[in-house]
């Protein structure tokens, strides 16, 4: 049985979402809010921000970006897997360290490349030897995904054809 195209599922999700959450009447909400807010002491500390990128992750990502940049400038003989993406925009990904599957996911916020089974800080700095994208894009963010033991390359502003 063929898998249903994601686009069709996504379209359905978006349609289904437009009216499934009831929102309380505006006047009633603000009347209740004002009654409760009156007399509240303000200027409490704001909630601690959620650390979207922990310090070690930022450091690892910066390190990986620098090393990747350097690796792109200095040609290194390939001794490991070269995975050419099926989609022509990503022309080459060369990963030196052992890793599992490479998968590509399109998103409205860019294109995401997963290198499964690769954790940047565990295997040294030279894992991603080359990464080349032919299509226009604004930036590439490299980060670890702690929940799946994988490395994510987030190509901002690029939509796969």
């Amino acid at each position: 049985m063929k898998t249903m195209p994601w686009r069709k599922i996504e379209e359905t999700l978006r349609k289904a979402g437009s009216d499934d959450v009831p929102v309380r009447d505006s006047a009633a909400f603000w009347e209740a809010f004002k009654a409760r807010a009156e007399g509240e002491t303000r200027n409490e500390a704001a909630p601690a921000p959620v650390a979207l990128f922990p310090a070690w992750l930022k450091a690892a990502a910066c390190f990986a970006v620098i090393v990747t940049g350097a690796a792109l400038l200095i040609p290194t003989p390939s001794n490991n897997s070269i995975v050419d993406a099926e989609l022509s925009e990503i022309t080459a990904i060369e990963v030196a360290a052992a890793h599992g599957e490479i998968t590509i996911d399109e998103s409205v916020e860019g294109t995401i490349v997963w290198i499964h089974g690769l954790e940047l800080e565990d295997v040294g700095p030279n894992q991603i030897k080359a990464f080349d994208v032919a299509a226009d894009h604004s930036a590439v963010t490299i980060m670890n995904d702690e929940s799946t033991n994988s490395t994510i390359l987030w190509i901002h502003g690029m939509e796969l054809k």
Partner: peptide
Amino acid sequence: GVSIGTVMSRLFNAK
């Protein structure tokens, strides 16, 4: 209350 990387990963697996 999670990181952006975790969101990407969850979204990918959820799809």
